[in-house]
């Protein structure tokens, strides 16, 4: 007994000191961890749990219905159509935003005031809310809007930009490209400007044309920026919503509803949060898989360049 009394404090003291040393770290890190767990980790787990229920969003009483919501996702034609349109938007949006962004970045990469002005003009829509961009273009592309008025002067009959299925889909994609390519361009510009000028001088000495320089020097050296641009645009466009809501409100005939449009409509307008959660879980998985797939595919390309 006597010995245990002397041993115990000796053992306890370092433990207490460890905790005293850890205390500031816990006080500094604790609140952020708590908020993050409450608003990210718990919801992530809940999203899966709720996707197995028929929760309506109001009452806290609901029943588990197994994987019924998931099987409905693949049976429901509206969800399938929304998924297909989202894929189309994501694909063409990513290709066009990056294509236009890269081309314009290459054109205005030099110093000079005109180039800076161009950068500002091309980029500014990115800082405007997508909802407002959607409303603005919806007014411009309306049957009596500015574009049709202009076409009328040229003797061209009014184009149903937002009221005919094919045109409406194209209008959604082009509006997204209009407002988003500036962001891709900014990243490409940063990449192009980080290429050491000696490389271009060496290429000029070798007699390479500007196009050859772009292909052999610029493109390989901005490969990492390319990857970031592709992944960010793709992942961002898979959850496009605001601009569609304001531009076409999913119409005509539900042809421009995206998957997030569908999720929010099912969840909150139709009070089927369980079904919405199932679609959200699938969207999360698809986003993660595609994002990682592009990253790894590009990493291969980046390595080939480095070798």
């Amino acid at each position: 007994m006597h010995s245990s009394l002397t041993v115990a404090p000796a053992r306890r003291r370092p433990a207490a000191r460890v905790w005293r040393d850890r205390l500031p770290g816990i006080v500094m890190g604790g609140p952020a961890v708590l908020v993050f767990v409450a608003m990210f980790i718990v919801p992530m787990i809940l999203a899966f749990v709720l996707s197995l229920t028929d929760w309506n969003g109001y009452s806290l009483n609901f029943t588990f219905i197994g994987f019924e919501n998931y099987t409905e996702v693949f049976r429901n034609p509206r969800t399938v159509d929304a998924a297909i349109f989202t894929a189309v938007v994501a694909f063409f949006g990513t290709v066009l935003c990056n294509g236009v962004g890269l081309a314009l970045a290459a054109l205005i990469a030099g110093p000079g005031r005109t180039n800076t002005l161009m950068r500002t003009i091309f980029f500014y829509p990115y800082i405007i809310s997508a909802l407002i961009i959607g409303f603005l273009w919806s007014a411009i592309l309306a049957p009596e809007g500015a574009v049709n008025e202009l076409l009328g002067h040229l003797g061209i009959p009014a184009v149903p930009f937002l009221t005919e299925v094919g045109f409406a889909k194209a209008s959604v994609i082009l509006t997204i490209v209009w407002s988003h390519f500036g962001f891709n361009m900014i990243l490409f510009l940063a990449g192009i400007k980080s290429v050491p000028t000696e490389y271009y001088e060496a290429a000029t000495v070798d007699g390479a044309s500007r196009w050859q320089q772009f292909r052999a020097v610029t493109l390989p050296l901005i490969a990492p920026v390319f990857t970031v641009n592709l992944v960010l645009t793709l992942v961002g466009l898979l959850k496009v919503y605001d601009v569609v809501l304001a531009l076409t409100d999913g119409g005509p005939a539900a042809s421009t509803q995206t998957i997030v449009y569908q999720i929010l409509k099912d969840s909150f307008a139709q009070s089927r949060l369980g079904f919405g959660a199932a679609q959200a879980v699938i969207l999360l998985l698809v986003t993660a898989v595609l994002g990682l797939a592009v990253t790894f595919a590009r990493r291969g390309a980046e390595k080939k360049v480095a070798a």
Binding site: P43, A47, Y241, L273, V281
Partner: peptide
């Protein structure tokens, strides 16, 4: 890594369960 994983979770996906929480 815990916090960075949040970069890949779109807000729209967690919105429904966040309403629950």
């Amino acid at each position: 890594l815990l916090f960075v994983s949040g970069l890949f979770i779109p807000g729209q996906v967690t919105l429904i369960p966040v309403v629950f929480v």
